[in-house]
């Protein structure tokens, strides 16, 4: 049971972070389908930092460095979407998809290059980061407490405040609802959209980092993040683009994802004798069902997905 809670919380943290990223981007008017790719690249940034960070550093410094590198690399990668979608008015779905393919491919090429440079026989795409990862974990009894859970909760609160209580957040939302109106009162729509995309890059990168540190001490980048970027988008839609609802939705999805890891620990579930594949499929099936019920009365930002053109009415 404890294990289930632990996994639920850590998966929920991943989903919350990434879904909030998507939320910021979409509120600014840019659909970010590329979150999956951003997660992989952010995870790569964090993993490499964990690998190369000197062993003697104090835990808080390690945490800060690793998080910073994930966030920065995620932001940098999201700029690819930003520039294409905002400056060059590209099809956002297409560019997002390209990011999703680009992320894992670039990560595998890079990691393999690093591994091969270390020893010619090493053709794996794995980064090991066992020692540095310990900085993130505090054991409370048998419960493996992870600092990321706190960070996710904090960022959820911050997102709520930023989106609804600050001038920046309200302006951001205006750009996603009616950019022409926002522009007419002197808001720079392009800048706001860049801000939205960059925030989503930062949160997506961080989410990727949390994903690869959840449970494992090394990561094979060929596996990517197994559709978590898209699950996060489902969480965002289920949460109706509102931070608090996103938090609750993430808990629900996290629970189903965690079940596939730990269902063997429950006698009632083992007694059902379902093949383990069913549990692997569960999060995706649930999200489809959930989407059926919530997509009808969608509260999506009105202008999302439409490139902003100053000359248009």
């Amino acid at each position: 049971m404890l294990l289930l809670i632990q996994y639920t919380l850590i998966f929920a943290s991943v989903l919350v972070l990434v879904a909030l990223g998507g939320c910021f981007s979409e509120h600014s008017g840019v659909v970010n389908i590329g979150l999956e790719g951003i997660m992989v690249i952010g995870a790569l940034g964090g993993a490499l930092m964990m690998k190369y960070v000197p062993a003697g550093l104090a835990a808080p410094v390690v945490i800060l460095l690793v998080i910073l590198s994930s966030v920065l690399i995620g932001m940098l990668f999201s700029l690819l979407l930003g520039v294409a979608a905002i400056r060059f008015k590209a099809d956002q779905t297409l560019v997002g998809t390209a990011l999703n393919l680009l992320g894992p491919a670039a990560a595998v090429v890079l990691v393999r290059a690093i591994n091969t440079a270390e020893s010619v026989d090493n053709v794996s795409s794995t980064v090991a980061y066992g020692t540095a990862k310990k900085a993130f974990i505090v054991n409370i009894g048998r419960f493996e407490f992870n600092w990321f859970m706190v960070i996710a909760l904090l960022l959820l609160a911050v997102s709520y405040i930023v989106l609804y209580k600050t001038r920046f957040g309200l302006r951001l939302c205006a750009c996603g609802e009616h950019p022409q109106a926002a522009d007419s009162v002197g808001i720079n729509v392009y800048k706001m959209r860049y801000a939205g995309v960059l925030i989503s890059g930062a949160l997506g990168g961080l989410g990727g980092l949390v994903y690869i540190t959840a449970g494992v001490s090394e990561w094979k980048f060929e596996n990517g993040v197994a559709g978590f970027g898209f699950l996060a988008l489902a969480v965002m839609i289920f949460g109706q683009w509102r931070p608090v609802n996103i938090g609750l939705a993430a808990l629900l999805f996290g629970l189903f994802r965690a079940l596939s890891n730990v269902y063997t620990g429950f006698d009632a579930l083992v007694a059902l004798k379902l093949p383990s594949t069913i549990y692997n499929m569960l999060p995706y099936i649930i999200s489809l069902i959930v989407l059926v019920f919530v997509s009808g009365k969608s509260r999506a930002p009105k202008a999302e997905g439409i490139p902003y053109d100053k000359g248009q009415r």
Binding site: L80, F88, A90, A98, L101, A113, S125
Partner: peptide, 19 residues
């Protein structure tokens, strides 16, 4: 090098198609 370099190239080509 690794074979995935081709995937990288085709992914980048998709990205460019956006332009």
């Amino acid at each position: 090098y690794c074979t995935q370099i081709s995937d990288l190239i085709s992914a980048f080509i998709i990205y460019l198609c956006g332009f």
